[in-house]
Design a protein around this nucleic acid. Structure first.
Lengths: 336, 336
DNA sequence: TTGTACGCGTTATCAC
DNA sequence: GTGATAACGCGTACAA
């Protein structure tokens, strides 16, 4: 109805209420004494004009954007979506908007990240989505920064899930099943995945086995499906340890298509414990990673950095949990 | 290294280059004549000071945020994530940042949406995530608005997928299989889903059948799983038409747990054609919805509204496609 | 208790 | 070709 198109400014409110803008500001923000009568007049004017302070004005004056950024590769699959959700939830509770940037391997990422950094009070970056020199640039600029799922970065907070211990447990468990020919599905990423492969490799070495070279694939169901068909067509491994649950689901699919039974002919394990892992058939042995919590922690850590509640970077590793289900074998024999 | 913490302003650049801020602005934006020598000095100063124009300053002066908002319920499941991805991709190509707001049924949504509306040049809202009066408020404020998956809204663009025709095709196909006792999994939502149920009901009516009442459930695998167990425990339907693929996957899971064969004992269909639909066993009969494209269209429509390339709202419906796979029955008999 | 005036960092319109 | 200077919308010392 009253489509004013250009929304009211604090000056119009002041004029209508017959006061100065300073009084309007005080009345609205409770940042100083205002006579009851005056406040009432102001509030009425605000109401009538449907006044809301301009974000730009507020930000310019306060020096704060009240917005955070988050950089991730994509949203295919539950992992990034869940983390993002946990992040948004907390950020929004803390009164901060969330600006997203999906890299998808684009060439312009550095510029996009710089751009983003100019419109937020701090940002979160998933490991391996942004070049190290650009990350360093952000740190150097003094912008509060939290990295997710990455090894330590000088000057930035890190929030990560525990990988080494769980990967070792997983490897030990598979050895306990008697498997010796173990394949790794999903290539190195210099982050989470690499930590897992290193840990698995170490355990195998300790048992006199040659650590297998991970086979690269896209971290999607389709990627796992394609790689699974390949791995299961040659000399068949006894177990396939997958980089994440999606890859594992794809591998299981490939096995079924090839007429192989899981875990009868080949054991398969995942990582993350996405919802489908429990519902898959066979149910997926995996490592539970608190995805939402990861995002929530990142948001809180970033808030501390922004508000200055803390000024020294901190690195926190959240525990993960080996979840034994059916896909890794029918005789679970857990060892010390 | 040169951690200046507070980044340089245009005044500092001007001073260092020995010119006025107007010249710096012109040199940087090419919005007026600048002597070659002068430009060079300016650019060197910019380089040395690592100057980037403040977003707030630019926005305040230009009157544009160069940012769009998007409001969705959550990111569980591929549907919203895919649409969001398509949206972000185009928005970012158009030089606009994306600010997200996940409602998750929070009570504070109206305020959060108002807040969001103050920091963007336009926004996209998924149908049924924001109260109608709040939507009207946004429209009334003159902010460019695009609604996704919703029936028409006065004053706003709408981008939706075709539901009625495909739902009718799906229903006819199931009737062609000979099914008469058909259940609907997933309650009304006053949007997409309701359109589908209405259309299915109509086809059944035309064939002398009583349109079934849809059974509500969460639109997740778990929701479908729970509802599936319920529906398949009582008098068993011959076919279960699900609100989306996730629900369908859950229902299939429930059937397997109950020792029922799909489609032998009960046919199941989904909607969306998410990646898992093709990989499911049995492969899911569903309706393919161009999710990324939906987001991309929304971003482009919003851009038209913002730039003023178009000033009258438009409603576009993108076609969908019935995808017959194994889950609906073994003897596909497509009819006219 | 209230009002004036300045600062925040740009862009753009004028004169020169 | 260049430089003052007025917006843009707000918060807030400081003065009254």
């Amino acid at each position: 109805m009253a489509n004013s198109d250009e929304s009211a400014t604090i000056y119009q409110v002041a004029q209508r209420a017959g006061v100065s803008i300073a009084t309007v500001s005080r009345a609205l923000r409770g940042t100083g004494p205002v006579a009851a009568k005056t406040r009432e007049r102001v509030l009425r004017a605000v109401e009538e004009l449907r006044f809301t302070p301009s974000r730009l004005g507020v930000s310019l004056a306060s020096g704060r954007h009240a917005a955070n950024g988050i950089v991730f590769p994509d949203l295919s699959g539950p992992y990034f979506a869940e983390v993002l959700l946990g992040y948004e939830e907390v950020a929004s509770e803390l009164g901060r908007s969330v600006i997203i940037l999906s890299t998808r391997g684009r060439a312009a990422v550095p510029d996009l990240v710089r751009d983003l950094s100019r419109r937020v009070d701090g940002m979160v970056i998933f490991g391996q989505t942004v070049r190290d020199d650009v990350v360093a640039e952000i740190v150097d600029s003094g912008l509060p920064l939290v990295m997710i799922a990455r090894d330590d970065v000088a000057g930035a907070d890190v929030v990560a899930s525990e990988n080494t211990v769980s990967a070792a447990r997983l490897a030990s468990h598979l050895l306990g099943h008697g498997y010796r020919r173990i394949a790794l599905a999903g290539g190195h990423d210099n982050g989470d995945i690499t930590q897992r492969w290193t840990s698995v490799g170490q355990v195998l070495s300790e048992h006199g086995l040659t650590p297998p070279e991970p086979s690269p694939c896209e971290f999607t169901v389709e990627g796992g499906h394609a790689l699974g068909r390949y791995l299961l067509s040659g000399p068949r491994p006894e177990a396939i340890v997958c980089a994440d649950d999606q890859v594992a689901l794809g591998v299981i699919l490939a096995a079924e298509e090839l007429g192989l039974s899981v875990p009868g002919d080949v054991a398969v394990t995942g990582w993350d414990d996405i919802m489908a892992a429990r519902h898959a058939r066979p149910a997926l042995t995996t490592v539970r990673q608190p995805m939402r919590d990861l995002g929530a922690r990142a948001a809180r850590a970033l808030d501390e950095l922004i508000t200055g509640a803390r000024d020294t970077p901190r690195s926190q590793v959240t525990p993960t949990e080996l979840v034994i289900r059916a896909s890794c074998g029918t005789h679970p024999l857990e060892e010390a």
